[in-house]
């Protein structure tokens, strides 16, 4: 194998390892209850398309960010199972029913754990996953279910199993959202700036997918001038 004349370091394509791309899993938990009807749900749908388009603009992010969507409105549904951004087909969500937010959180966490198990058995490396909750209301599945969901989020954050973001819009109950994460404040969307929010999410995940960084990722600012959110008081 070293009989050829020396010409520096050359490795053929076949000699490189052929590992699957590492993944950045992201679960979107989207409120599709009746109160989201009209402009909010339309903007949310546009936001999802924006999210896909932005991810596709980055070569690595388009291969590494994986998106799954649960909607909660009336019941909870897995609207899109995990696929890489290149294969992500944003749904056209419709608004109806009440707000089973706790159930959506529990199903999202469970689905994420199953995905991680699949990664592990297939030699796929992954970055710390994201769970991104968007709501304009408050949970309707009862206090006990809500307490369980809060505990699951708290534990998951503490064990660094995922990073949980809660974003409120419209008449969201921020007192409830604050109970979800003792460390991370919920954010309040400015108006219905879903597209700006998803652009931020895409930028952040592109940064994550690009380098192998420490626990504290320097995310672009979400709040302040030019941001899409503020911190509710």
């Amino acid at each position: 194998m070293n009989q050829e004349p020396y010409s520096g370091f050359k490795v053929t394509e076949q000699e490189f390892a052929d590992n699957p791309d590492p993944r950045v899993p992201c679960v979107l938990l989207l409120d599709t209850s009746a109160s989201m009807s009209g402009e909010p749900i339309a903007e949310l749908n546009l936001g999802l398309q924006q999210y896909r388009d932005e991810l596709l603009m980055d070569n690595l992010a388009s291969r590494r960010v994986e998106v799954a969507i649960f909607r909660f409105g009336g019941d909870v549904g897995l609207e899109r199972d995990f696929v890489i951004a290149r294969q992500f087909d944003p749904p056209a969500l419709q608004a109806s029913g009440h707000t089973p937010m706790a159930e959506a959180i529990m199903r999202g966490i469970k689905h994420l754990e199953e995905r991680k198990a699949t990664y592990q058995s297939n030699g796929v490396a992954y970055y710390r996953p994201w769970i991104f909750l968007i709501t304009d209301g408050e949970p309707t599945d009862g206090d006990d279910a809500w307490r369980v969901a809060c505990e699951a989020v708290r534990l998951g954050e503490q064990q660094k199993k995922f990073t949980f973001f809660a974003v409120g819009t419209g008449a969201a109950n921020y007192d409830k959202l604050r109970q979800l994460s003792p460390t991370r404040q919920p954010l309040r969307l400015k108006g219905i700036a879903f597209r700006e929010m998803f652009r931020w999410l895409s930028n952040s995940q592109t940064r994550v997918s690009q380098s192998q960084v420490g626990t504290h990722i320097a995310l672009p600012p979400a709040t302040g001038d030019g941001g899409w959110a503020d911190v509710p008081t």
Binding site: M1, A17, D21, P22, G123, A125
Partner: peptide
């Protein structure tokens, strides 16, 4: 790591390292 390690076997990716080491040996 993505080029030179094998995540499934959790070890070095042999062909790449053999080639790199052979280059070290071959250099005049």
């Amino acid at each position: 790591a993505p080029l030179l390690l094998d995540f499934r076997t959790k070890g070095p990716h042999g062909p790449a390292f053999e080639r790199l080491f052979a280059t070290c040996t071959a250099a005049p």
